[in-house]
Amino acid sequence: MNSIFILGATSDIGRELSYIYAGKGYSLILSARDKSDLTALKQDVKVRFDVDAETVSLDLQDFENIDDVISSFKGQICGFVLMAGYLGDQQLAQSSKDEAYKIMAVNYTGSCAALESAAKNLESVPKSFIIGVSSVAGLRGRQSNYMYGSAKAGLISYLSGLRNRLQKSDTTVLTVLPGFVDTKMTAHLELPALLTASPAKVAADIVKGQTRGKSVVYSIFVWRYIMWIIRCIPEFVFKRLSL
């Protein structure tokens, strides 16, 4: 019972998390959509840390399959990280049902199904933890990415409810709210350097929050204050802004 299931392991932050947990001596179950990407990461982790990782491909849009895949590791896992996300294209999502559905399925319904399965398998495991990575975009809907933002908002509420439910068990639930991160998901965007974190920094913040038993972690911390200000803007002003 020393494995950590990382869903979205081949993302930039997921990869850094794999390194940190492998370095701490955990076994890893690496999960993502693409099997060959997982194999590359598995080999990489093996060379770097001499840790054998298992891989399992899983697509969060494949709703029926999620619980079976995660439950197959029951008894083996002591931690679960949901690190998968799909930024999508807001403009496209306004006209394409498929794009809108994909954004919501990956970031909300599929994510919740995975977390629900993780909770079921971990709630009786002592000192276990669940980490859900949402986004500061979920704290207030903006015209530039409200499809993504609303799905991430749903995930934030879901995680808060799950934390409440598991309060009496020995399972902690951590909500992670990254701001801008320099990853392949955002490579096409021009992000302000001072507000943009490296994937390694976000991963380090996540693990620090998890080991300290925190409920909510912003990465980088300054986003806590930025989002506080943004949420304070009255709606009659906010609706006129082009954010």
């Binding site: 590359a40 990461l41 080999q43 990489d44 060379v47 770097r48």
Partner: peptide, 8 residues
């Protein structure tokens, strides 16, 4: 970003 170890 193509930085993976394969074997040693």
């Amino acid at each position: 970003k193509n930085d993976y170890f394969i074997s040693f």
